[in-house]
Amino acid sequence: MKDILRLMVSLGLVCAIGCAALVFVNERTKAPREAVEQAVLNDNLKLAVPAGLDCEFDAARRLDYDKVTFHRAYRDGRLVALVAQTRGHGFGGRIYSLVGLDPASGAITRVLVTGHAETPGLGTQATDRKEQKSLWKASELQPGEVPPNAFLDRFTGKSGEASYVLGKPEPDKPGIIEGVSGATYSSKGVLQGVNRACKVFREHRAELLN
Protein backbone atom coordinates (compact mmCIF):
# COMPACT_ATOMS: atom_id res chain seq x y z
CA MET A 1 0.00 0.00 0.00
CA LYS A 2 2.71 2.40 1.05
CA ASP A 3 4.69 1.36 -1.99
CA ILE A 4 1.84 2.11 -4.35
CA LEU A 5 1.41 5.52 -2.79
CA ARG A 6 5.09 6.23 -3.33
CA LEU A 7 4.80 5.28 -7.00
CA MET A 8 1.73 7.46 -7.47
CA VAL A 9 3.27 10.47 -5.79
CA SER A 10 6.55 10.28 -7.71
CA LEU A 11 4.93 9.81 -11.13
CA GLY A 12 2.38 12.49 -10.27
CA LEU A 13 5.14 14.88 -9.26
CA VAL A 14 7.05 14.31 -12.50
CA CYS A 15 3.86 14.99 -14.48
CA ALA A 16 3.03 18.11 -12.45
CA ILE A 17 6.51 19.57 -12.84
CA GLY A 18 6.43 18.75 -16.56
CA CYS A 19 3.04 20.46 -16.90
CA ALA A 20 4.27 23.53 -15.03
CA ALA A 21 7.28 23.77 -17.36
CA LEU A 22 5.01 23.52 -20.41
CA VAL A 23 2.61 26.15 -19.07
CA PHE A 24 5.53 28.49 -18.49
CA VAL A 25 7.00 27.99 -21.98
CA ASN A 26 3.55 28.20 -23.59
CA GLU A 27 2.81 31.52 -21.89
CA ARG A 28 6.19 32.97 -22.73
CA THR A 29 6.02 31.99 -26.41
CA LYS A 30 2.34 32.84 -26.98
CA ALA A 31 2.82 36.44 -28.08
CA PRO A 32 5.76 35.77 -30.43
CA ARG A 33 3.96 32.77 -31.92
CA GLU A 34 0.83 34.81 -32.66
CA ALA A 35 2.90 37.64 -34.13
CA VAL A 36 4.65 35.15 -36.39
CA GLU A 37 1.33 33.66 -37.47
CA GLN A 38 -0.13 37.08 -38.27
CA ALA A 39 2.96 38.17 -40.20
CA VAL A 40 2.99 34.92 -42.17
CA LEU A 41 -0.72 35.28 -43.00
CA ASN A 42 -0.18 38.86 -44.21
CA ASP A 43 2.75 37.83 -46.40
CA ASN A 44 0.78 34.93 -47.83
CA LEU A 45 -2.30 37.05 -48.57
CA LYS A 46 -0.14 39.33 -50.69
CA LEU A 47 1.19 36.29 -52.59
CA ALA A 48 -2.33 35.09 -53.45
CA VAL A 49 -3.14 38.23 -55.44
CA PRO A 50 -1.58 38.86 -58.88
CA ALA A 51 2.06 40.02 -58.78
CA GLY A 52 2.50 43.78 -58.85
CA LEU A 53 -0.81 44.55 -57.14
CA ASP A 54 0.23 46.62 -54.14
CA CYS A 55 -2.47 46.39 -51.48
CA GLU A 56 -3.04 46.24 -47.72
CA PHE A 57 -5.60 43.87 -46.28
CA ASP A 58 -8.07 45.44 -43.87
CA ALA A 59 -8.56 43.29 -40.76
CA ALA A 60 -11.76 45.19 -39.88
CA ARG A 61 -13.44 44.23 -43.15
CA ARG A 62 -12.82 40.53 -42.84
CA LEU A 63 -15.87 38.31 -43.40
CA ASP A 64 -16.20 34.97 -41.56
CA TYR A 65 -18.33 32.13 -42.91
CA ASP A 66 -18.54 28.46 -42.05
CA LYS A 67 -14.96 27.13 -42.47
CA VAL A 68 -14.07 29.98 -44.85
CA THR A 69 -12.80 33.49 -44.07
CA PHE A 70 -12.61 36.20 -46.69
CA HIS A 71 -9.89 38.86 -46.47
CA ARG A 72 -10.43 42.04 -48.44
CA ALA A 73 -8.15 44.87 -49.53
CA TYR A 74 -9.44 48.31 -50.50
CA ARG A 75 -7.91 51.27 -52.27
CA ASP A 76 -9.79 54.59 -52.43
CA GLY A 77 -12.90 52.85 -51.10
CA ARG A 78 -12.85 50.35 -53.94
CA LEU A 79 -12.32 46.59 -53.51
CA VAL A 80 -9.06 45.64 -55.24
CA ALA A 81 -8.28 42.21 -53.82
CA LEU A 82 -10.31 39.35 -52.38
CA VAL A 83 -8.69 36.28 -50.82
CA ALA A 84 -10.50 33.32 -49.26
CA GLN A 85 -8.84 31.52 -46.37
CA THR A 86 -10.18 27.98 -46.47
CA ARG A 87 -9.38 24.41 -45.55
CA GLY A 88 -9.94 20.80 -46.63
CA HIS A 89 -9.05 17.32 -45.41
CA GLY A 90 -5.92 15.80 -46.88
CA PHE A 91 -3.96 12.65 -46.11
CA GLY A 92 -2.31 13.94 -42.94
CA GLY A 93 -5.08 16.15 -41.58
CA ARG A 94 -6.24 19.61 -42.53
CA ILE A 95 -4.85 21.42 -45.54
CA TYR A 96 -5.12 25.19 -45.09
CA SER A 97 -5.12 27.24 -48.25
CA LEU A 98 -5.67 30.71 -49.65
CA VAL A 99 -7.70 31.22 -52.81
CA GLY A 100 -7.20 34.58 -54.48
CA LEU A 101 -10.22 35.85 -56.44
CA ASP A 102 -10.34 38.66 -58.97
CA PRO A 103 -13.11 41.05 -57.77
CA ALA A 104 -13.79 42.22 -61.33
CA SER A 105 -14.17 38.92 -63.16
CA GLY A 106 -14.70 36.50 -60.26
CA ALA A 107 -11.93 34.23 -61.56
CA ILE A 108 -9.40 32.44 -59.37
CA THR A 109 -6.08 34.29 -59.47
CA ARG A 110 -3.97 31.90 -57.45
CA VAL A 111 -4.25 28.97 -55.05
CA LEU A 112 -1.69 28.88 -52.26
CA VAL A 113 -1.42 26.14 -49.62
CA THR A 114 -0.31 27.70 -46.33
CA GLY A 115 -0.38 24.80 -43.90
CA HIS A 116 -0.53 21.01 -44.15
CA ALA A 117 0.83 17.77 -42.76
CA GLU A 118 1.14 15.82 -46.00
CA THR A 119 3.85 13.25 -46.66
CA PRO A 120 7.04 15.03 -47.75
CA GLY A 121 7.96 14.15 -51.31
CA LEU A 122 4.58 12.59 -52.12
CA GLY A 123 1.59 14.58 -50.87
CA THR A 124 3.62 17.78 -51.00
CA GLN A 125 3.66 17.51 -54.81
CA ALA A 126 0.06 18.71 -54.69
CA THR A 127 0.55 21.37 -52.03
CA ASP A 128 4.01 22.94 -52.05
CA ARG A 129 5.23 25.65 -54.35
CA LYS A 130 8.95 25.08 -54.31
CA GLU A 131 11.45 26.55 -56.67
CA GLN A 132 13.92 24.04 -58.03
CA LYS A 133 17.26 25.44 -56.92
CA SER A 134 20.36 24.67 -58.90
CA LEU A 135 24.08 24.88 -58.28
CA TRP A 136 24.52 26.09 -61.84
CA LYS A 137 21.82 28.74 -62.13
CA ALA A 138 20.70 31.67 -59.97
CA SER A 139 17.08 32.07 -58.90
CA GLU A 140 14.92 33.78 -61.53
CA LEU A 141 12.03 34.53 -59.20
CA GLN A 142 10.84 38.15 -58.94
CA PRO A 143 9.47 39.54 -55.66
CA GLY A 144 5.73 38.90 -55.37
CA GLU A 145 5.93 35.86 -57.62
CA VAL A 146 5.62 32.32 -56.37
CA PRO A 147 7.24 29.19 -57.79
CA PRO A 148 4.93 27.13 -60.00
CA ASN A 149 3.06 24.04 -58.91
CA ALA A 150 1.51 22.16 -61.81
CA PHE A 151 -1.52 21.06 -59.81
CA LEU A 152 -2.29 24.31 -57.97
CA ASP A 153 -1.79 26.35 -61.15
CA ARG A 154 -4.57 24.38 -62.88
CA PHE A 155 -7.08 26.44 -60.89
CA THR A 156 -5.70 29.79 -62.07
CA GLY A 157 -8.08 31.55 -64.41
CA LYS A 158 -10.98 29.21 -63.65
CA SER A 159 -14.29 30.52 -62.35
CA GLY A 160 -14.49 31.27 -58.64
CA GLU A 161 -18.13 30.20 -58.52
CA ALA A 162 -17.90 26.71 -60.01
CA SER A 163 -17.60 23.37 -58.26
CA TYR A 164 -14.62 21.19 -59.15
CA VAL A 165 -13.96 17.43 -59.27
CA LEU A 166 -10.79 15.40 -59.86
CA GLY A 167 -10.56 13.50 -63.13
CA LYS A 168 -9.18 13.33 -66.62
CA PRO A 169 -9.46 16.78 -68.16
CA GLU A 170 -11.76 17.27 -71.12
CA PRO A 171 -11.74 20.41 -73.29
CA ASP A 172 -15.45 21.12 -72.93
CA LYS A 173 -15.66 20.47 -69.16
CA PRO A 174 -13.73 23.13 -67.21
CA GLY A 175 -14.93 21.68 -63.86
CA ILE A 176 -12.62 18.67 -64.11
CA ILE A 177 -9.17 19.16 -62.60
CA GLU A 178 -6.38 16.65 -63.13
CA GLY A 179 -4.94 15.43 -59.80
CA VAL A 180 -1.39 14.37 -58.95
CA SER A 181 -0.70 10.63 -59.12
CA GLY A 182 0.73 9.44 -55.82
CA ALA A 183 -0.96 12.33 -54.04
CA THR A 184 -4.66 11.64 -54.60
CA TYR A 185 -5.77 12.39 -51.05
CA SER A 186 -3.71 15.58 -50.92
CA SER A 187 -5.15 16.69 -54.28
CA LYS A 188 -8.65 16.01 -52.97
CA GLY A 189 -7.94 17.99 -49.81
CA VAL A 190 -6.83 21.05 -51.78
CA LEU A 191 -9.83 20.67 -54.10
CA GLN A 192 -12.23 20.48 -51.14
CA GLY A 193 -10.85 23.75 -49.79
CA VAL A 194 -11.22 25.47 -53.16
CA ASN A 195 -14.78 24.14 -53.51
CA ARG A 196 -15.72 25.50 -50.07
CA ALA A 197 -14.38 28.94 -50.99
CA CYS A 198 -16.20 28.84 -54.35
CA LYS A 199 -19.48 27.83 -52.68
CA VAL A 200 -19.37 30.77 -50.28
CA PHE A 201 -18.40 33.13 -53.12
CA ARG A 202 -21.31 31.83 -55.20
CA GLU A 203 -23.82 32.30 -52.38
CA HIS A 204 -22.60 35.59 -50.92
CA ARG A 205 -21.20 37.32 -53.97
CA ALA A 206 -23.03 40.62 -53.48
CA GLU A 207 -22.00 40.93 -49.83
CA LEU A 208 -18.38 40.03 -50.57
CA LEU A 209 -17.96 42.44 -53.46
CA ASN A 210 -19.49 45.26 -51.42
Partner: peptide, 23 residues
Amino acid sequence: PCYIVVIAVFVTIVQLLMAAYAP
Protein backbone atom coordinates in the same frame (compact mmCIF):
# COMPACT_ATOMS: atom_id res chain seq x y z
CA PRO B 1 6.51 6.35 -17.58
CA CYS B 2 8.56 9.09 -15.92
CA TYR B 3 11.12 9.02 -18.73
CA ILE B 4 8.38 9.25 -21.34
CA VAL B 5 6.85 12.26 -19.58
CA VAL B 6 10.24 14.00 -19.45
CA ILE B 7 10.89 13.27 -23.14
CA ALA B 8 7.43 14.44 -24.20
CA VAL B 9 7.87 17.68 -22.24
CA PHE B 10 11.18 18.35 -23.99
CA VAL B 11 9.73 17.65 -27.43
CA THR B 12 6.82 20.02 -26.79
CA ILE B 13 9.16 22.73 -25.53
CA VAL B 14 11.33 22.38 -28.65
CA GLN B 15 8.20 22.59 -30.79
CA LEU B 16 6.90 25.74 -29.05
CA LEU B 17 10.29 27.45 -29.17
CA MET B 18 10.68 26.66 -32.85
CA ALA B 19 7.22 28.02 -33.65
CA ALA B 20 8.00 31.26 -31.82
CA TYR B 21 11.60 32.00 -32.73
CA ALA B 22 12.44 29.91 -35.82
CA PRO B 23 9.30 30.02 -38.00
